[in-house]
Amino acid sequence: MTYKLILNGKTLKGETTTEAVDAATAEKIFKQYANDNGVDGEWTYDDATKTFTVTE
């Protein structure tokens, strides 16, 4: 399945997608991606749209 991440960081904003077997796997990938890019904030997930959002 395709999952989407919306980044609302102070210095980085944008979107990315990943292919993952489930939401938990996608979350791990996205949290590593956000960490690698210096984004740390409040996480939400919308199962209907398979979208994670992180807001600093």
Rank of each mutant, 00 (worst) to 15 (best):
1 M>F: 14
1 M>A: 11
1 M>W: 14
1 M>E: 09
1 M>H: 15
1 M>L: 11
2 T>L: 09
2 T>Y: 06
2 T>H: 07
2 T>E: 12
2 T>S: 07
2 T>D: 06
2 T>M: 12
2 T>V: 11
2 T>Q: 15
3 Y>E: 00
3 Y>V: 01
3 Y>F: 10
3 Y>K: 00
3 Y>L: 01
4 K>H: 14
4 K>E: 03
4 K>D: 02
4 K>P: 00
4 K>Y: 07
4 K>N: 10
4 K>I: 13
5 L>W: 02
5 L>R: 00
5 L>M: 05
5 L>N: 00
6 I>H: 05
6 I>K: 06
6 I>N: 05
6 I>D: 03
6 I>R: 05
6 I>V: 13
6 I>T: 06
6 I>F: 08
7 L>S: 04
7 L>T: 08
7 L>K: 02
8 N>K: 15
8 N>A: 14
8 N>V: 11
8 N>D: 13
8 N>H: 09
9 G>Q: 05
9 G>Y: 11
9 G>H: 14
9 G>K: 04
9 G>I: 06
10 K>I: 08
10 K>S: 12
10 K>L: 14
10 K>E: 11
11 T>V: 15
11 T>F: 13
11 T>Q: 15
11 T>N: 14
11 T>I: 11
11 T>R: 05
11 T>P: 04
11 T>W: 15
12 L>A: 10
12 L>P: 03
12 L>F: 14
12 L>H: 14
12 L>R: 03
12 L>N: 14
12 L>W: 10
13 K>G: 07
13 K>I: 11
13 K>S: 08
13 K>T: 10
13 K>V: 12
13 K>F: 07
13 K>A: 14
13 K>W: 09
14 G>Q: 15
15 E>I: 05
15 E>D: 08
15 E>F: 05
15 E>K: 05
15 E>Y: 09
15 E>L: 04
15 E>N: 04
16 T>S: 10
16 T>I: 13
16 T>E: 14
16 T>F: 10
16 T>D: 04
16 T>N: 08
17 T>H: 11
17 T>P: 02
17 T>L: 12
17 T>E: 06
17 T>A: 07
17 T>R: 10
17 T>S: 14
17 T>G: 04
18 T>N: 03
18 T>M: 11
18 T>E: 05
18 T>V: 12
18 T>Y: 08
19 E>H: 10
19 E>A: 12
19 E>S: 09
20 A>M: 03
20 A>Q: 06
20 A>P: 02
20 A>F: 03
21 V>W: 14
21 V>L: 07
21 V>K: 14
21 V>N: 09
21 V>M: 12
21 V>E: 08
22 D>E: 04
22 D>V: 03
22 D>L: 04
22 D>R: 03
23 A>N: 07
23 A>Q: 11
23 A>D: 07
23 A>V: 10
23 A>P: 09
23 A>I: 14
23 A>R: 14
23 A>H: 14
24 A>P: 07
24 A>N: 15
24 A>Q: 10
24 A>T: 13
25 T>A: 13
25 T>P: 02
25 T>K: 06
25 T>H: 13
25 T>G: 07
25 T>L: 12
25 T>V: 11
25 T>R: 06
25 T>S: 09
25 T>D: 07
26 A>R: 00
26 A>D: 00
26 A>I: 02
26 A>S: 02
26 A>L: 01
26 A>M: 01
27 E>T: 04
27 E>F: 11
27 E>L: 14
27 E>G: 13
28 K>G: 13
28 K>V: 14
28 K>A: 10
28 K>R: 08
28 K>T: 14
28 K>I: 06
29 I>M: 09
29 I>K: 11
29 I>E: 10
29 I>H: 12
29 I>L: 12
29 I>P: 01
29 I>A: 08
29 I>Y: 14
30 F>E: 00
30 F>Y: 02
30 F>Q: 00
30 F>L: 05
30 F>W: 02
31 K>P: 00
31 K>W: 08
31 K>G: 04
31 K>R: 11
31 K>T: 07
32 Q>I: 11
32 Q>R: 07
32 Q>M: 15
32 Q>A: 14
32 Q>W: 05
32 Q>F: 07
32 Q>V: 10
33 Y>S: 02
33 Y>H: 05
34 A>S: 08
34 A>E: 01
34 A>Q: 02
34 A>R: 01
34 A>I: 08
35 N>S: 11
35 N>K: 15
35 N>A: 13
35 N>E: 09
35 N>Q: 09
35 N>R: 11
35 N>Y: 09
35 N>D: 10
36 D>V: 13
36 D>S: 13
37 N>R: 08
37 N>A: 13
37 N>E: 14
37 N>L: 06
37 N>G: 05
37 N>Q: 12
38 G>N: 15
38 G>A: 08
38 G>T: 04
38 G>E: 09
39 V>I: 10
39 V>E: 03
39 V>G: 02
39 V>R: 02
39 V>M: 10
39 V>L: 05
40 D>F: 07
40 D>G: 09
40 D>Y: 13
40 D>I: 07
40 D>W: 06
40 D>T: 14
40 D>H: 10
40 D>N: 11
41 G>L: 03
41 G>I: 02
41 G>E: 01
41 G>Q: 02
41 G>V: 02
41 G>M: 03
41 G>K: 02
42 E>Q: 09
42 E>Y: 12
42 E>P: 05
42 E>W: 14
42 E>N: 12
43 W>E: 00
43 W>T: 01
43 W>G: 00
43 W>H: 01
43 W>Q: 01
43 W>A: 01
43 W>Y: 03
43 W>I: 04
43 W>V: 02
44 T>Q: 10
44 T>P: 00
44 T>V: 11
44 T>N: 09
44 T>E: 12
44 T>F: 08
44 T>I: 08
45 Y>L: 02
45 Y>S: 01
45 Y>Q: 01
45 Y>I: 02
45 Y>A: 01
45 Y>M: 02
46 D>S: 06
46 D>R: 03
46 D>E: 07
46 D>K: 04
46 D>N: 13
47 D>M: 15
47 D>V: 13
47 D>T: 11
47 D>A: 15
47 D>P: 15
47 D>W: 10
48 A>I: 11
48 A>L: 09
48 A>P: 11
48 A>F: 14
48 A>H: 09
48 A>Q: 14
48 A>Y: 13
48 A>W: 12
48 A>S: 15
48 A>R: 06
49 T>N: 08
49 T>V: 09
49 T>L: 09
49 T>S: 10
49 T>H: 14
49 T>Q: 06
49 T>Y: 06
49 T>F: 09
49 T>D: 05
50 K>G: 08
50 K>M: 10
50 K>I: 03
50 K>F: 06
50 K>T: 04
50 K>Q: 07
51 T>A: 05
51 T>E: 05
51 T>I: 09
51 T>Y: 03
51 T>R: 04
52 F>Q: 00
52 F>H: 02
53 T>E: 05
53 T>R: 05
53 T>H: 06
53 T>F: 06
53 T>Y: 08
54 V>L: 10
54 V>S: 02
54 V>P: 01
54 V>T: 03
54 V>H: 02
55 T>Q: 11
55 T>F: 15
55 T>Y: 05
55 T>H: 12
55 T>L: 07
55 T>S: 09
55 T>M: 08
55 T>P: 01
55 T>D: 10
55 T>R: 06
55 T>G: 06
56 E>H: 06
56 E>A: 05
56 E>P: 04
56 E>V: 06
56 E>N: 04
56 E>S: 05
56 E>K: 03
56 E>Q: 12
56 E>L: 05
